[in-house]
Design a protein around this nucleic acid. Structure first.
Length: 585
RNA sequence: GGUCCGGUAGUUCAGUUGGUUAGAACGCCAGCCUGUCACGCUGGAGGUCGUGAGUUCGAGCCUCAUCCGGAUCGCCA
């Protein structure tokens, strides 16, 4: 670059008396007449460039002409500052510049490049390359890179082979909606982008690779959330000659290594476990946040004889009455706000929400007409409530009471600010194999149809599908699902039977999974694996609450990308070639 | 697809019951300033009030539609 070669990153500049060459973006200019300071920024941080009346006039004038975000290369001697800045890593030194190159001028950016920004995210995403200049965002991306490296290192050290699987594959039924890619050669046919490399990694096990890993891009055409992007990355792995325990301990080893390497945090292993059934009954969700208590309590027996029709009819219909106690909430939740909770509960499927708001001496129960003073007192002591608490009660089928209270538990805990920091990992095990779909009146696979049922459950496949437990497991961190996996069926006859239980006809099985069933006829070791969400790991490990903050070029809620404006309309020639005609929706 | 929230200088926001010329801070431009680091001082430029209809003598403000972004429910084997 015009005879100058960079010697130091900005924040790594050191050695008083040394001549250095630094390069970066102009963060800030302070022009004090015969004295100019420029804060120069690169991905490591900031160093101050200094110019004074001993500076060559041409260099001085060049410095004066600089503006924010100009790209500079500056040579100079490192010297101690006359007045130091304790806020800055390089606050004790500055570079006294004798040669300055303006490598690139820059327009005034639409927003200032500041770590602590409150600029509208929409604008930041439109100019994502400017947003990404901010050190906080760069650090997130760097941590993400370290996570990926830790994964490759750990699994390579444990004998895993990194193998790429195709991105253009055949659409698989069930599961999420596929993104599809039209084929030019096969007019009218489409590839699908993989929702995960599931089938391919099983085939790699059949091929005998024994241990596979891939940082796999996955695609799901479903609505977005803060923790859901339509394309995302999984640390995808599969192992042969294993059962559940082998995979869990391999994954635990990785988690331990990862957190030590990237965050220098010690994660005690083995990680705690909870069955799906316990998770649902105690937390109303299959991904409980166990950083705080407030578990769901079963009040059914306490109110079994009550006259209150809401409670009684729920119980008589085979349901339950359950509650959570929100400690010290009466001071925070006014009557009006409790009403909002009632609306919220109704919005997520409850018929209603009974409550006791115990602010004053006398607890105020929404159902006090139906209970005596003593009965209410005994209910309160039964659930362990004290004065100042609010008790939220739902009476319905378990499939309503549990998830509703689980959601209320999270909402109120956030509002009460009672969720401590920490790394609370939890394995959820013993998932049901089937999930009844009331709409189609079918049993669907809860995990996926290749999941191995527990040995002792195979006998219930026909008689009582709801009773079949799968060799499937999820890893949950602070209430967010990080990972999901299972042992796969490696026996083609059993696989055939599972497909039949799912209501697939022989023709459907043959058309959709024929090659997979065929493959298992040629011998397969017991195998299983999991996919760990790299994006979510990065989000949690950087303390962010959106995947957008750990993704270089994320998509927004309607799955478009604001910088490039993707997706775009296909042009006429492209569509003609593919034989595609667009109809108005 | 439903519900809710938001959209006013480049940015972040304020804008009274609908009423004269829509303000502030930061940023930007120019000048001055020898130790700044949120530099300071002086002056200046900068607005399709997301868009389109409607109500009204008069709309940033009220109504409807629509676009964009976010949260949430559905959805995500």
């Amino acid at each position: 670059m015009n005879g100058l070669t960079r010697t130091n990153y900005c924040a790594d500049t050191e050695g008083i008396g040394k001549t250095v060459v630094v390069g970066g973006y102009v963060q800030k200019i302070r022009d004090i007449g015969n004295l100019i300071f420029i804060d120069l920024r690169d991905r490591t941080g900031i160093v101050q460039l200094a110019f004074d009346d001993n500076t060559d006039r041409a260099v001085f004038e060049k410095a004066r002409s600089c503006r924010g975000e100009f790209v500079l290369l500056a040579r100079g001697v490192v010297r101690e500052r006359e007045s130091k800045n304790k806020e800055l890593k390089t606050g004790d030194i500055e570079v006294f510049v004798d040669d300055l190159r303006i490598l690139s001028k820059a327009q005034t950016p639409p927003f200032e490049i500041l770590n602590d920004t409150n600029v509208n995210e929409e604008l930041r995403l439109k100019y994502r390359y400017l947003d990404l200049r901010r050190n906080v965002l760069q650090n997130n991306i760097i941590i993400r890179s370290k996570i990926a490296k830790a994964a490759r290192d750990y699994f390579a050290d444990n004998g895993f082979i990194e193998i790429e699987t195709p991105m253009m594959i055949k659409s698989t039924p069930e599961g999420a909606r596929d993104y599809i890619v039209p084929s030019r050669i096969h007019n009218g046919s489409f590839y699908a982008l993989p929702q995960s490399p599931q089938i391919y990694k099983q085939l790699l096990m059949i091929a005998g690779f024994d241990r596979y890993i891939q940082l796999a891009r996955c695609f799901r055409d479903e609505d977005l959330r803060a923790d859901r992007q339509p394309e995302f990355t999984q640390i995808d792995l599969e192992m042969s000659f294993v059962d559940v325990e082998d995979i869990l301990s391999m994954a635990e080893g990785f988690i331990k290594y990862l957190f030590k390497t990237v965050l220098d945090a010690d994660i005690p292993t083995p990680l705690p476990r909870m069955s799906y059934k316990d998770a649902m009954e105690r937390y109303g969700t299959d991904k409980p946040d166990t950083r705080f208590g407030m578990e769901i309590q079963n009040m059914t027996d306490m109110v079994r004889d009550s006259e209150f029709v809401v409670f009684r009819s729920a119980i008589e219909a085979g349901g339950s009455v359950r509650a959570i106690v929100v400690p010290d909430a009466a001071a925070v939740y006014t009557r009006k706000e409790v009403d909002k909770l009632v609306d919220y509960a109704k919005g997520i499927g409850a018929k209603g929400l009974a409550y006791v708001r115990w602010a004053d001496e006398e607890p105020n129960a929404s159902f006090k007409k139906f209970f005596t003073h003593d009965e209410i007192a005994s209910l309160l002591s039964g659930v362990g409530a004290k004065r100042g608490d609010i008790v939220l009660i739902v009476a319905d089928k378990d499939s309503v009471t549990l998830p509703v209270l689980g959601a209320l538990r999270l909402v109120t805990a956030k509002r009460m600010d009672m969720i401590p920091d920490g790394w609370n990992f939890l394995w959820i095990t013993d998932f049901p194999f089937f999930e009844y779909n009331a709409e189609t009146e079918h049993w669907d696979a809860m995990h996926h149809p290749f999941t191995m049922p527990k040995d002792e459950c195979v006998q219930y496949l026909d008689s009582d599908p709801g009773k079949v437990i799968a060799k499937a497991y999820d890893l949950v961190l602070n209430g967010i699902e990080l990972s999901s996996g299972s042992i796969r069926i490696n026996d083609y006859e059993l696989q055939q039977k599972m497909f039949e239980s799912l209501g697939l006809t022989d023709e459907e099985i043959e058309a959709k999974f024929g090659f997979l069933v065929e493959a298992y006829k040629y011998g397969a070791a017991p195998h299983g694996g999991m996919g760990i969400g790299l994006d979510r790991l990065a989000m949690l490990m950087t303390g962010c609450d959106s995947l957008r903050d750990v993704t270089a070029f994320p998509k927004v809620q309607n799955a478009s990308e604001l910088m490039s404006q993707a997706p775009g309309k296909g042009d006429k020639a492209q569509l003609d070639e593919l034989g595609i005609m667009i109809t108005e929706k």
